[in-house]
Design a protein around this nucleic acid. Structure first.
Lengths: 143, 143
DNA sequence: ACACATTTGATTGTGCACAACTTAATTGCC
DNA sequence: GGCAATTAAGTTGTGCACAATCAAATGTGT
């Protein structure tokens, strides 16, 4: 009776993901608070740092979020002066999102955040790499 | 340059957890909708199935949720007739949560849910066990 | 016994997630 | 060219998460 109930296990996997996700983002929170960012807003910053101006649709595909989540989130980041939203001239349906100078100026501090979290984590890097790889494989099955 | 930026990787780990958690709970959602439950409500049901009546504090420790989340959630489940909340006689600060007959009657259907999700998942059980084990170890570092 | 600290749960307020719907622009098809 | 179908964002409404605060009950030390 190595595993008494594989179904309970599957349940536990979902719960473990749910718990681990919240616990790890909680580690980011105090650092993000210093920059006035939430975790999803931080993800938007990373996407714009890496890829330059993006449409709302692009951001949605990158972060797996829909306009119901992104529209108000981007509106808040716009109000905070971090980014600009402008209707695309080529296609008036699209809205292009790009960082302002204020947003761009946060780049070094934002990039320092995962470094700090990792330092405080006390987990060997190979373990993180391994976990990430297995999660990615698993995610592939969930499309 | 096998890994050019371990910090970006760490970032990706948090994002991978965040994405995987949402993707997997999304698999539960249509099944939970049939029972009129949300995922956190489903976790409350499981805790009560396994351990019998619990205080709000007990539930909070089991699910890593505080009263700000649990109070309104339990209020909704109470309104739906799934459970009862009663002040403890021994300690008037505590509220004991217990399933009603309606809630108890959902047990077989609730227990079928993870079974169905796993069947639709197309991932070998050993992979799930392995992922779960690594997640649990990682979670241990996050307390 | 009594003042003070702690514990428990509820409440308020903000910001995601997500479903369902709306509006406006564009595409495709004839 | 004209019209139905599709696409992109935004809006509305519900339900978490989480921080901060509050009120009431209990515990503690003297």
């Amino acid at each position: 009776m190595a595993q008494r109930d594989p179904l309970a296990l599957e349940q536990q996997l979902c719960f473990a993901l749910y718990t681990a996700s919240r616990a790890l983002t909680a580690r980011y929170r105090p650092l993000l608070d210093d920059l006035g960012l939430t975790y999803p807003q931080y993800l938007v910053m990373l996407a714009l740092f890496d890829r330059g101006p993006l449409t709302v649709k692009d951001l949605g595909q990158a972060l797996h979020l829909d306009s119901g989540t992104l529209s108000p989130l981007l509106k808040r980041m716009d109000a905070a002066g971090l980014l600009r939203r402008t209707r695309s001239a080529a296609d008036e349906r699209s809205v292009v999102v790009e960082l302002t100078e204020t947003g761009e100026a946060l780049r070094p501090r934002v990039r320092e955040i995962p470094r700090t979290v990792f330092r405080e984590l006390d987990t060997p890097l190979p373990d993180l790499i391994d976990l990430h790889a297995r999660l990615t494989t698993f995610l592939g099955k969930l499309d």
